[in-house]
Design a protein around this nucleic acid. Structure first.
Length: 837
DNA sequence: AGCACGCCGACT
DNA sequence: GTCGGCGTGCTC
C-alpha cells in the first residue's frame, strides 16, 4: 500500500505538461471541513463534481468520497495526497444535491460529510477493509513466533489472505492489532486496505431457445424425432413446459420453469448441454415495479375542485402553498391530481409523509393511479433496494417518490413539486444523528433549487406554517367540507368529576355515557375507536401510605405497570423491572394503580361487553411492520368492533364504518407539562375526532375530561383552528419564541447537572453583547433529566436578518468549539423548527 | 469514524 | 518494571 502511494506521488511530481488539478472531496465523516486531494494526471480525464473517488485519510484508511469542486491553485498550508482511483463513470449526485448538502450543513450546523452520510445509501459509502497478505518471501519456519502469532501465521500460510474479522475469530477479538503489528515487523505478512463495492446487482437466470430452434419447423422436427434420437421423456416434458410458459408469460426464468415443470436442474442442464435451450444471467430489479400507469378514475367534489384550482393558481405566484383541509376532506385526491399533472409534464414529484403515516392503505392508493411511476422510500428498505431507487431517481426513470423524511435527500433530477402531507407532524424534524434537519423546511429550500413548488397539507397546520400563510409568504387554501357529504362529528364533553367522588379514587375509565353510546353503536353494527394516549395497564403506582411512586433508575419517569407481561416498564428508555410489592420508602405493601392505559381499557371493555370483538393498537401489540397493516385490514373488514389504541390509530387511516370515537382521558393530553401542549392537544384531539363520521349518519366524539373549561376543548368542539391559532400565537409571543423568529436550541448533556449548567452558562456569557440581547424568555436555560444525563436546553431567539443570523451561528459555533475543547462539557447544537430562508 | 499517542492503575 | 485501560487530537 505504501509502495502504491509512493508511486503515484512520484508520477505526479514528474512534469507532464498537464496543469495540476485538485479536488475538494466530501468524505462521509464528521470532519471539521472538506479536505483536498490532488488528481494525478492519468486520472484527470475522468473527474467531475459528483463523482466518487477513492481517497486515503489518516494513516491508511480508505474512503469513497464525493468530489464537490475541482480547482487548480495549489493549497499553501499542506501537501495534498493524491486520489487513488475513480469509482464512477457518471456522477452519483447532480449539482443540485451538492448545493443542497452545503446548505443543510450551513443551516443546521453540521458537516457536509454528515449530510452525505445521511443521504447516500450505505452500499455506496465504501470504507476499506484491512486484509493480511502472506509475505511470499517469508520462510515456512515459524521460529521466534509466540502462540498467537503462530496461529495467525499458520492460517495465513494456508489461505495466503486473511480478513480482519477472520483474524479476530482466530484470536478471540480483543488484542488483534498488536499481534498484527508484530507479524508485520517479523515480515510474515503485510496489510492491504481494500475498498469494496458493496452494491451487488441481483441476477436472475433466464432460459431461452437456441436460435437453431426458433423456427416452428425446426422445433416440430426436434419433437417428432425425440424418441428416436434420445430417450429422455422427462427432458421432453421440461421442453414442452418451457414452450408453454414462453407462450403465456413471454420470458421464462429458470426458477419459474423448474417450479412449474417440477423438473430438476440436472434435466435442465442436459437440455442446455444438448444445445436446445440456453441459460443466460441478467441483472434484474430488486424492486418489483408495476406497469407505468397514469390513471385518474375519480371525480373531485366541487369543493375539492375549487381547492385544486386555487392551489394551482396560487402556486403560479408563490413557491409554497398551505392546504388546510379538515380531516376526511380528501386532500389526497388533490395531491393525486397535482402529481399526475407533474408527471405528464415530465417532472418529478416528491410526496413526503411522516414515517408512521406510510401505511399500506396510502401506498396501495397511489400505486393504483401511478403504478410503476411511483417508488416508495423509507428507512426500512434494505441497502441494495435503496441503491436501485437512488439510481432510478437520479436518472429520472422514477417520476414520483412517496417517502418519509429521508426521501428528501434522494438525487432528484428535475423536481417539479414537493408535497409535505401532515406538515405539522413533529417527526419531520430529525432529532438525533446530525444533520438535524426539519424536512418540511428543507424541502422548501430544495424545491427552490429546481424552481419547483411546495404544497404543505394538514388538517391541523403548525403555527409556523399558518403564520407564514397569513403573512402572505405562503399561499393558503382552505377545504372546510368533508368529502362525500360527511358531516363533521359532533363533539360532546363528559365531565368525569361527576362520577369521581373522592380524589383518591381511581380515575373513571368508562363513564355510563360512553358505555351507552358504545352499546348503541355496536347494536347498529357500527365500529368504535377508543383513544387513550398511554399504553400499558397503569401509568404509575402509588404507595397508599406514604405516596411514594416508583421511578426509573435511569430516567426521571414513572414506571408503567404492564399486566400482560407482569412487569414495570420505563416508557422512556425501555428498561423493565419486576413488579414491586414493597414500598421502597416506607415498607408498606399497599400500592394503588393510578390512572389507566390501553391494556386496562381492553380488559375493562371485555368485562363489560363479553363477546365483543376488541383489538388493541399500540407499541406493545404491534411489533412487526405487518402487524399494523393486518390490524388495520381486520378493522376495515369490520371483523373488529372496538379498536383501542394510542396515537397509532390516528395516522393515515380512513375507516368508513366508525361512528363513535371516545377520548377516554383528555386530562392526560391537556395537562402535560410542555410549552407546546395546546397546539399538540388540539392536533391530537382533532385528528382522533376526524376518525368519526359517516355518510349515512352522524359521527360522535365523546371526550371524557375533568377540566371541562380548558379553552382548547372549546376550539376542538367547534373545529375552530383559527381560534387555536390565535390562542397559541399569543401564548408564544408572551412566553416563548414566536413562530416568526429563528431559534437555535443548544443542548448540554452531562451526568451531573451542575456541569451541564456550567457549560450552558459559559455558552451564554461567552456570546458577544450584540447577541445576548436575543436571549430572552425561553432563552433562560431549562433543565430536564433524560436517562442518566442532565440536559440543559437554551433556546436562542434570533433576528430575522439573514446576515445577523449567520453571524450568530458563527459565534455559536466558535463558542461551542471552546466548550467542547474542554472535554468536561459536551455541547450539542440543535436547530429546531425554524422558518426557511 | 478510525487510529495513534500518551498518561495512570493491576499484573508478571 | 510492563501491559493495557481509554481520554485527546488529527486526518487533506
Amino acid at each position: 500500500m505504501t509502495e502504491q502511494s509512493n508511486t503515484s506521488q512520484l508520477l505526479f511530481s514528474q512534469p507532464t505538461g498537464q496543469a495540476a488539478l485538485y479536488a475538494e472531496v466530501i468524505v462521509p465523516l464528521a470532519l471539521p471541513k472538506n479536505y483536498t486531494w490532488s488528481i494525478p494526471p492519468h486520472l484527470q480525464a475522468g473527474v467531475q463534481p459528483g463523482i466518487r473517488v477513492e481517497v486515503v485519510l489518516g494513516k491508511n484508511k480508505k474512503y469513497a468520497g464525493i468530489i464537490k469542486r475541482l480547482f487548480t491553485e495549489k493549497p499553501g498550508a499542506f501537501d495534498p495526497k493524491p486520489i487513488l482511483n475513480i469509482l464512477d463513470n457518471e456522477p452519483l449526485v447532480h449539482p443540485a444535491q451538492l448545493e443542497f448538502w452545503e446548505w443543510i450543513a450551513r443551516y443546521y450546523l453540521c458537516s457536509e460529510g454528515e449530510v452525505m452520510q445521511a443521504a447516500v445509501p450505505a452500499n455506496l459509502k465504501l470504507s476499506s477493509e484491512t486484509i493480511l497478505i502472506w509475505n511470499e518471501e517469508h520462510e515456512e519456519d515459524f521460529e521466534g513466533l509466540d502462540d498467537e502469532e503462530y496461529l495467525v501465521a499458520e492460517a495465513l500460510l494456508l489461505k495466503k489472505e486473511l480478513r480482519l474479522y477472520e483474524v479476530q475469530q482466530i484470536l478471540d477479538a480483543s488484542h488483534v492489532y498488536p499481534v498484527i503489528k508484530r507479524l508485520i515487523e517479523k515480515r510474515v505478512c503485510h496489510v492491504w486496505e481494500e475498498l469494496k463495492e458493496k452494491y451487488k446487482e441481483k441476477k436472475e437466470t433466464y432460459i431461452t431457445l437456441q436460435p437453431a430452434y426458433h423456427s416452428e419447423e425446426a422445433m416440430a422436427g426436434l419433437l417428432n424425432n425425440w424418441n428416436s434420437t434420445s430417450r429422455a421423456p422427462k427432458q421432453m416434458e421440461l421442453l414442452l413446459a418451457y414452450l408453454h410458459l414462453e407462450k403465456t408469460t413471454g420470458e421464462v426464468t429458470q426458477s419459474e420453469l423448474l417450479k412449474k415443470s417440477g423438473a430438476t436442474s440436472a434435466q435442465l442442464k442436459a437440455l442446455t448441454d444438448k444445445g436446445i435451450l440456453r441459460a443466460t444471467k441478467r441483472a434484474i430489479d430488486r424492486i418489483q415495479r408495476l406497469p407505468k400507469d397514469l390513471s385518474i378514475d375519480f371525480a373531485l367534489s366541487p369543493a375539492q375542485q375549487q381547492a385544486l384550482d386555487e392551489t394551482r393558481h396560487l402556486l403560479q405566484e408563490k413557491q409554497v402553498c398551505l392546504l388546510h383541509g379538515v380531516t376526511s376532506s380528501g386532500k389526497t385526491q388533490i395531491y393525486i391530481q397535482l402529481i399526475e399533472q407533474s408527471i405528464r409534464e415530465g417532472q418529478q414529484v416528491l410526496y413526503l409523509l411522516p414515517e408512521i403515516a406510510l401505511t399500506a392503505q396510502i401506498i396501495r392508493r397511489l400505486q393504483k393511479h401511478f403504478g410503476g411511476h411511483i417508488a416508495i422510500y423509507h428507512s426500512k428498505f434494505n441497502p441494495n433496494e435503496r441503491v436501485e431507487i437512488w439510481n432510478k431517481v437520479k436518472s429520472g426513470d422514477i417520476k414520483a417518490v412517496l417517502g418519509a423524511r429521508s426521501a428528501l435527500l434522494l438525487p432528484f433530477k428535475n423536481l417539479g413539486l414537493i408535497i409535505a402531507d401532515e406538515e405539522h407532524d413533529s417527526s419531520y424534524k430529525q432529532q438525533d444523528p446530525a444533520p438535524r434537519y426539519q424536512a418540511r423546511d428543507a424541502a422548501i429550500y430544495y424545491a427552490g433549487l429546481f424552481n419547483a413548488k411546495v404544497l404543505l397539507g394538514s388538517a391541523t397546520p403548525s403555527i409556523e406554517s399558518y403564520y407564514n400563510a397569513l403573512q402572505g409568504k405562503y399561499g393558503l387554501v382552505k377545504l372546510t367540507e368533508r368529502f362525500g357529504n360527511v358531516a363533521m362529528p359532533e363533539i360532546e364533553l363528559v365531565d368525569v368529576r361527576q362520577q369521581q367522588l373522592q380524589p383518591n379514587q381511581p380515575k373513571v375509565m368508562i363513564t355510563p355515557k360512553l358505555q351507552q353510546a358504545l352499546e348503541a353503536s355496536v347494536a347498529q353494527n357500527k365500529q368504535v375507536i377508543l383513544f387513550q394516549n398511554r399504553r400499558g395497564y397503569s401509568p404509575y403506582l402509588l404507595c397508599s401510605v406514604c405516596g411514594w411512586i416508583p421511578h426509573c433508575q435511569h430516567c426521571d419517569v414513572t414506571l408503567t405497570y404492564h399486566k400482560s407481561k407482569n412487569k414495570l416498564a420505563c416508557h422512556y428508555c425501555g428498561t423493565t423491572y419486576p413488579v414491586m410489592h414493597t414500598c421502597a420508602a416506607c415498607g408498606s405493601h399497599n400500592f394503588i394503580q393510578k390512572n389507566f392505559g390501553t391494556e386496562k381499557i381492553e380488559e375493562a371493555i371485555a368485562e363489560i361487553f363479553p363477546g365483543m370483538r376488541i383489538a388493541r393498537m399500540d407499541l406493545d401489540s404491534v411489533k412487526g411492520k405487518n402487524d399494523h397493516d393486518n390490524l388495520i385490514k381486520l378493522f376495515e373488514q369490520q371483523r373488529i368492533d372496538v379498536l383501542i389504541g394510542t396515537q397509532m390509530v390516528v395516522k393515515g387511516l380512513d375507516f368508513e364504518n366508525v361512528n363513535l370515537v371516545g377520548i377516554l382521558d383528555a386530562d392526560a393530553i391537556l395537562n402535560f407539562a410542555d410549552f407546546r401542549v395546546n397546539e399538540r392537544a388540539y392536533q391530537l384531539m382533532e385528528q382522533v375526532s376526524g376518525r368519526a363520521g359517516r355518510k349515512d349518519g352522524e359521527g360522535k366524539v365523546l371526550i371524557q375530561v375533568s377540566n371541562t373549561t380548558h379553552p382548547v376543548l372549546g376550539f376542538v368542539q367547534q373545529h375552530n383552528y383559527g381560534q387555536l391559532f390565535q390562542f397559541e400565537l399569543q401564548n408564544r409571543q408572551q412566553f416563548f419564541y414566536p413562530p416568526f423568529s429563528r431559534v437555535i436550541q443548544l443542548v448540554f448533556r452531562h451526568k451531573e447537572d451542575h456541569i451541564a449548567e456550567e457549560a450552558a452558562h459559559i455558552m451564554i456569557s461567552g456570546l458577544k453583547p450584540n447577541f445576548q440581547q436575543y436571549l430572552s424568555g425561553p432563552a433562560q436555560p431549562a433543565i430536564h433529566r433524560i436517562r442518566n444525563q442532565f440536559i440543559w436546553e437554551v433556546l436562542l431567539k434570533l433576528p430575522r436578518n439573514a446576515a445577523l443570523i449567520q453571524q450568530c451561528k458563527t459565534e455559536i459555533q466558535q463558542q461551542t468549539a471552546i466548550i467542547q475543547s474542554n472535554k468536561r462539557y459536551r455541547a450539542v447544537v440543535i436547530v429546531p423548527d425554524v422558518d426557511p430562508v
